[in-house]
Every structure is written in C-alpha cells, then in structure tokens.
C-alpha cells in the first residue's frame, strides 16, 4: 500500500465524519447553545449593557457546522498520516481492526482526556480574562496526553518480548491508567467558576452533548477509514497477487 490512496481515503472518511458531526451539532448541540445564550443575554441586560455581536446567530450556526466539517477533514488527514507511519507496527489482522485501534487511542488521547480535565462549557460560562490561561492549559494537556500515548505504545512494544503474553495486556492497562490518572491529577484545574445563572442541568446537558459529538467524530472516522482502506487493500491484493499470498488466499 502507498501513501496517496491511503490519504485520500482518510480525507473522505474525515469529511463524512465531519458532515455527520455538523448535522449532530446543528440538531443536538445548538439548542443548548441557544439556551445558554438566552441566560447570558438576560444577565447582560440586567447589568444594563447589551453586547453587540460581530455575527448573527444564524451565521454562527453555519460557522459551527463549517467548523465541524473542516475539523473532520483536518483530523482525518493527520490521522491518516499517523496511521501510515505506524501501520506496520500494529500487530492486528487487518485494516479495520488496526484503524479502529488507532482511532480508539486517538479518541482517548485527543478527546476523552481533555474532556475530563477541562470539560466543554456553553457560551456565557468562560471568563474572557482567563481565556489565554485556559487555552495554554488545554493545549499543554493535549500535548502531554498525546506524548503519553506515544510513550505507552513504545512501552507496549518494549514489554512484548520481556513478559508473558498473558501479563502483557494487564501490565499495559495498569500503566495506562496510572499514567493518565497522574497526568489528570498534576495538571492545574480551570481558573473559572461556573456562575451567572447557568444551571447545573444546562451545564450537564451541554457537556454530555459536546462529548457525544467528539465520540461521533472518532467513531465515524475510525469505522469509515477502516472500511474504505480494507476495501482498497482487498482490491489491490486481487489485482496484484503476490506469490506468497496467492497460496494462502486460494
């Protein structure tokens, strides 16, 4: 397999996953954003200043959908390139399982870990004065989370020939949980407090729905890319049967 057809399929899968998330954001997340903005505006009105917005809400909803699609395509391209680089090291049977495994790692490191430490907030919660600090915290956690995933992957390979196969999985799970628990414990919490009339129900609804969107993206990318790649891989095998494989496939 070569890089170009692989990247093409990663981009297609990313685009499809992004489209799926765009629909999800519009139908499921936007209603909670509207609820939060209503709360925010009521609070601003009480204090006598109505903020002037740069874009109309409908434009921002279009921007939200566009962001989801662009995010899907770019994450697809990055994921596909990383997959191309590590594919031969993943000792799994086929493209579907290899891609699913890497997508699970990606989801955990890029979506789950940041969502646990710095959960998503609806508009009106974040303090504009701490946005710089929160961005730095978020990006630092994201970088460390990806770094840990790489380190744990190398640890898995290092352990493979040093411990019994039965102990390998258990040791890896323990190491993963310990490493990420430590990371989540030592990174500083968000400086913001939730206030200004945002109810616990609204906050919870928004966080669950936002996390659902991230899960949908990785699920769509992981299954879509794996499926497209498996199909491609089978076709190329049929087109050019190597003498080695011809015997096993007959």
């Amino acid at each position: 397999m070569s890089y170009k057809p692989l990247l093409l399929r990663a981009l297609v899968a990313g685009l499809m996953a992004g489209l799926l998330v765009a629909i999800y954001v519009f139908a499921v997340i936007e209603p909670t954003i509207d609820r939060a903005i209503a709360v925010e505006h009521a609070a601003e009105h009480d204090h006598g200043h109505d903020a002037k917005e740069m874009f109309a809400r409908t434009t921002q909803k279009g921007g939200g959908a566009a962001a989801s699609i662009i995010y899907g395509v770019i994450v697809g391209a990055i994921f596909g390139t990383v997959y191309a680089a590590v594919r031969h090291r993943l000792s799994l049977a086929n493209e579907v399982t290899r891609v699913a495994w890497l997508a699970a790692v990606g989801f955990g490191a890029v979506a789950l870990v940041p969502a646990i430490k710095y959960p998503a907030n609806p508009p009106g919660v974040g303090d504009p004065n701490t946005i710089g600090q929160r961005t730095t915290q978020y990006l630092a956690l994201l970088a460390l989370s990806i770094l840990l995933a790489v380190v744990l992957t190398h640890l898995s390979g290092w352990l493979r020939h040093r411990v019994a196969p039965s102990a390998h999985g258990a040791l890896l799970v323990v190491a993963t949980v310990a490493a990420y628990a430590t990371l989540l414990a030592i990174t500083p919490g968000s400086p913001d407090t939730i206030g200004r009339g945002v109810s616990a129900q609204l906050l919870w609804d928004f966080r669950v729905r936002s996390f659902g969107g991230l899960a949908l993206l990785w699920l769509g990318l992981g299954t879509g890319f794996g499926w497209l790649l498996e199909r491609h891989s089978e076709r190329t095998l049929e087109a050019t049967p190597s003498p080695e494989l011809a015997g096993t496939r007959a």
Binding site: M54, F55, G63, A67, A115, A120, P123, I131, Y138
Partner: peptide, 20 residues
C-alpha cells in the same frame, strides 16, 4: 483574526475547546 474566533464560535463550544 478574532473574525475567525467569532465565526467558528459555536464550533469551538461544541468541540469543547476553551472559549469566552
């Protein structure tokens, strides 16, 4: 560049990245 920030405002919140 804040134009991009405002335009993709909903996407930022939805995807769970820090926002005001």
């Amino acid at each position: 560049w804040m134009v991009a920030h405002e335009l993709f405002h909903d996407g930022r919140h939805a995807l769970g990245v820090p926002c005001h």
